[in-house]
């Protein structure tokens, strides 16, 4: 074996080691989070409210807030992202206007989430006077979510064969009808995967929320589902610390005695939720596709 071949062998061995190292990092991260965290996760932990000064607090309200904010943000951002994606993929022609729009979406997607959060703070919390609230948080998360969701939907639309559009147009349907009733349903598996993936990202986001949804989770009255009452879980104007914000908050200034247990437990729940989002994104999309192509 000559020198260059030896060199090649050695380099490739190094590459394998590097790749292995990256897998190890992830294994360590996931392992650490679950091994230290899951023992602290109990039914009681998931279903009882947090305690600021004593041990034995849970994360129920934070968990609820996270999901509530996620759902609201998705409801607001989905029609906007869908509309934007439709225009970009179906109508936009190659001109300066399209280029400007694409650039602004790129800018938005690479903006630090803390900047988005500060903008939300300025506009929703201060200017619109919504205060630290679910509403401010959901609107800010919408801004955070829009670029990625738009791109995901755009990609799914682009994957639909042009034959489908031709089919609709050939029947005398308008382009828009064709898009809404034929192209979008045909791209549903991709769109759903995209929504779930984005949900995972939104669910774990904290920096955009600390100055919009706030850092406190006041007690909620789970018997009262009237959104106009301030201690109703559905009230859009109450402050709502999410699970991700909770982890940051207690690690920065928490003083409860079981701080480590609570934060490792919270982190485990958060990562578990994200893992579920990630795995189901593949699974659900495929299932939807199977349903669409087979017997109803």
């Amino acid at each position: 074996m000559n020198r260059t071949q030896k060199q090649s062998r050695f380099a490739i061995a190094c590459l394998k080691a590097v790749a292995g190292f990256v897998v190890l990092i992830l294994a360590f991260l996931i392992g650490y989070i679950f091994i230290t965290g899951l023992p602290n996760v109990s039914w009681h932990f998931l279903t009882s409210p947090a305690k600021a000064f004593n041990a034995g607090g849970g994360i129920w309200i934070q968990l609820f807030n996270s999901f509530y904010l996620l759902v609201l943000a998705m409801i607001i951002s989905l029609p906007i992202a869908l509309g934007a994606a439709i225009y970009l993929n179906e109508y936009a022609t190659d001109n300066w206007f399209t280029a400007a729009i694409k650039t602004s979406i790129e800018i938005l997607s690479s903006l630090p989430s803390v900047v988005v959060g500060l903008f939300g703070f300025l506009l929703f919390v201060v200017q619109f006077n919504y205060g630290f609230s679910i509403l401010s948080g959901a609107l800010t998360l919408t801004i955070f979510n829009l670029p990625l969701l738009t791109r995901n939907i755009e990609d799914s639309l682009a994957n639909v064969s042009d034959d489908q559009r031709q089919g609709g147009l050939g029947l005398g349907l308008s382009k828009y009808e064709t898009i809404i009733h034929i192209v979008v349903p045909a791209s549903l598996p991709g769109i759903i995967s995209g929504i779930i993936l984005c949900s995972g990202r939104v669910f774990g986001e904290a920096a955009a929320l600390i100055y919009t949804a706030g850092q406190s989770a006041p007690a909620l009255n789970f018997m009262d589902w009237n959104p106009f009452n301030i201690d109703s879980p559905l009230s859009p104007l109450r402050p709502a610390e999410t699970l991700a914000v909770h982890i940051w908050k207690i690690n920065s200034e928490g003083i409860m005695p079981d701080l480590t247990q609570v934060s490792s437990g919270s982190a485990a729940v958060l990562v578990l939720a994200i893992l579920i989002f990630n795995l189901s994104a593949r699974f659900v999309g495929r299932k939807v596709f199977e349903r669409m192509t087979s017997v109803k």
Binding site: I80, L82, G83, I86, Y87, I101, K175, Y176, I179
Partner: peptide, 23 residues
Amino acid sequence: YERFGRLLSLSALLLIMAIVLGI
């Protein structure tokens, strides 16, 4: 309907652009 739909999707896009400019 076509004109309406086209306008609707364009306005979604303009909204995103306005947000970016706003920020």
